[in-house]
Amino acid sequence: MNITKQVEQLLKQGDVDIFLAYRELDGHLIPHGYTLDNLEDLENLKVSQHRYSLEKVATHLTEKKPNLKIGIVARDCNQRALNLLYTWNQLSPENITPLMVNCCPSQTRNHSDCTYLEPKKTGTFKQKKGIDFNENPREFMDNNDNGQRFSRWMYEFSKCIKCYGCRNICPVCFCTDCSLENPDLVEPGALPPEIPIFHLVRATHMAGRCIDCGLCEDACPAEIPLRFLYREMNRIVSDVFDYTPGAGLEKSPFTIIGNEVTLEPRPMDA
């Protein structure tokens, strides 16, 4: 059964009040909510390699109407984001019906049908000065010494125009008070924002939360390799806390209140 029929059935049976998917507008696919009142709209429903954090739309809808039943077209990354949002009580699994479609290469699925099928291209200048989007964090550590790493990251961060695009697109950014918008912490009207603190604050908040969908990197107009950064943050979380965000329904242990620990303090190597 094709996806249009499936959605039609879900709406007609009353399993969902609204179905979040995409429609074409002037040659672009944009997020769109399909409802029973506009069934004829369904012929515009399209699934392609374009992605948007539909689960973020679902979170906003749920904020307004907590009992709204929402259907959602989901790839593997959407599913991971949904798991995380369930964990943090932003959505409840009873109200969400995901319809799975093909996705980018991931640990759980082999199908590929998304923007990450073709790796992002890195220009020669960026390769020399900055950080290659497709580099492996381990190789980055091996190939660059302390000073090189520092100057490369400072080059990347200094491009930031503080558009908050990474935060706005992020499916798992749901705090009502964002510390990056607090005028006491981040000075309003100054560019670039205080680096590297601005980006490290976000990186810390992403640790144990980022589900590696890569939308932040896609959205960034300054081409900062955010996915690369957050991926390494989660590597640390996985090593230290033994936790992978979005894989299951347990909360991240990287919180204020902790658990028992067996690690020893590091010796000071002078």
């Binding site: 990251w153 640790a207 640390i236 902790g258």
Partner: peptide
């Protein structure tokens, strides 16, 4: 727990190229 969090920050700073500037001791 503190040690885990500090280990996280130490590793993060290392990745940023600011290794060795944070130390934890009881």
């Amino acid at each position: 727990m503190t040690i885990k969090r500090i280990t996280f920050v130490q590793e993060m700073l290392k990745f940023m190229g600011l290794e060795g500037r944070l130390h934890l001791e009881w």
